[in-house]
Structures are given as C-alpha cells and as structure tokens.
Amino acid sequence: RRITGCWPGPGPAPRVLVLTTFDLDEYVHAALRAGAAGFLLKNSSPDRLAEAVRAVADGEAVLAPDITRRLIDTVTALPAGLLPGPAPAARPDRTELSRLLTARELEVLVLVGRGLSNARIAAALGLSEATVKSRVNRILTRLGLENRVQAALLVHGDGQAPLVGRDGA
C-alpha cells in the first residue's frame, strides 16, 4: 500500500508483484486492494516468476492460476447487484460470441479465462506476445469488458452457463 499509494519519486509508482508462501484468499484480496498488480506463490517455477515480472512491468495483471479460479468463484458467488458492469442478462451467449469474435479470438478468450498470461497464450497458440496482446484488447473492446477478470468471469459463467466446462472444453 505504501509503495503504490504514496510513491514519492518522479513518475508513476512501481508496479508490485507479491511473492509469498501464503496461499490465503484474505492475503490475495488485501494485496489487490492495496494496489498489487500480481500475486504469485513462492513455489512458482523460475520461468513463471520471470514471466510474471515481465507481464507486471508491461502493465498486465498476474495471478497464480489457482488464485484466479478461487477469485472467479468468489466473485460469481456475489449477488448480481453487487457486481459492476452490465446485468448478467446482458452477457453474450455462445452464438453471439461466435458472431462478435473470430475463432482464434474465442481460443484466446478461453485461455484468458484459464488465467494464462499473454506469454503463455502466445506459446500455446504459436503466436507472438504482441499479437496476443492485440487480440486480448480487441476481445475486451468488442465485448464491452474492462479487464481480463471480466473476460474470465464471462468464460466461467458469471452465474450462468459457462462457455467452457471445468475441463476447459
């Protein structure tokens, strides 16, 4: 909170990536409320940690996949009136999504919903990171979403039928 809220230096405050051994939701929520851009566990692989540092430095948000799943479960359990954005009825269905997005954009959307970073999506789909970043931005714009968390909620159902099952299909 002190780093992100009261940065005395010139320019913007540094972006914070929390690295901890404590896999507790209250720590995740507190860190995000305090302005952290990411939250990883110390048992993350060195490659995952390096990827997360680069992603946070590039302005992306990063959460460990297990944390992403639990955060989605927490948000989707909230009553609709407490959630920002359009009412759940405004959520596009599969048919509308296939009209609004290309097949490749739908693939990217599903991987965003799984909590993958742009680098991991790029590796999985054989694309460049810049291409993935562009597609994610286009997806968010076309669907009227503000961020990747909203995209993940869309993929996982947000109280309605999910676009993908628990196994990702």
Rank of each mutant, 00 (worst) to 15 (best):
F22K: 09
A30D: 05
G59C: 15
R15E: 02
A55Q: 05
A30S: 11
L49D: 00
S45P: 10
A30Y: 10
G38S: 10
L41D: 04
D58A: 15
V28F: 10
A31G: 07
R33V: 12
E60A: 07
L49Q: 09
A57Q: 15
G38F: 15
Y27Q: 07
A36M: 03
A31R: 03
F39V: 03
V62G: 01
K42I: 03
A57H: 15
L49G: 01
A61Q: 08
S45W: 12
T21E: 06
D23Y: 03
S45F: 07
A36R: 05
A55T: 05
V28W: 12
A37W: 13
V62H: 01
Y27W: 11
D58I: 12
E51P: 03
R33C: 05
E26Q: 03
F22Y: 14
K42W: 09
A30Q: 04
S44D: 06
P46F: 13
A34P: 06
L40V: 01
V18Y: 09
D25Q: 14
A36V: 07
K42N: 07
K42L: 08
G35D: 12
G35T: 14
L63T: 04
L17K: 11
A36F: 15
H29T: 08
D25T: 11
F22S: 02
D23L: 07
L41T: 12
G59R: 11
D25L: 12
K42H: 11
F39T: 02
L40P: 00
L32W: 04
V62L: 08
A31Y: 07
N43M: 14
R33K: 14
F39G: 00
A30R: 14
V18N: 00
V28M: 14
A55W: 09
S45N: 08
A61T: 11
R48Q: 02
A57E: 14
F22A: 06
A52M: 10
G59S: 11
D47V: 12
V16T: 05
A52F: 09
E60Y: 15
V18A: 07
D47C: 06
D47I: 15
L49H: 04
A61C: 13
L63I: 03
E26H: 07
A37S: 11
L63A: 00
R33H: 05
T20M: 01
G35L: 14
L24Q: 08
S45L: 12
D23A: 09
L49R: 05
L32G: 02
G38K: 15
R54W: 12
D25N: 08
A34C: 08
L41A: 09
R48N: 05
G35H: 10
A50T: 14
R54K: 15
D23F: 03
A30E: 05
R48M: 02
A36I: 03
L32C: 00
D23E: 11
D58P: 10
L32T: 01
T21N: 10
H29Y: 14
G38N: 09
A31C: 08
L40A: 01
D47E: 09
A57P: 11
A31K: 04
L40E: 00
S44K: 13
T20A: 07
D23R: 12
L24S: 00
G38E: 06
L24Y: 05
V28G: 06
L40H: 02
L40R: 03
V62N: 01
A34F: 12
R33S: 06
E26Y: 08
A61W: 11
A57W: 13
D23G: 05
K42P: 01
L17E: 00
A30M: 12
A61L: 14
L17S: 10
A55K: 05
L17V: 12
A61N: 11
V56T: 10
A57Y: 15
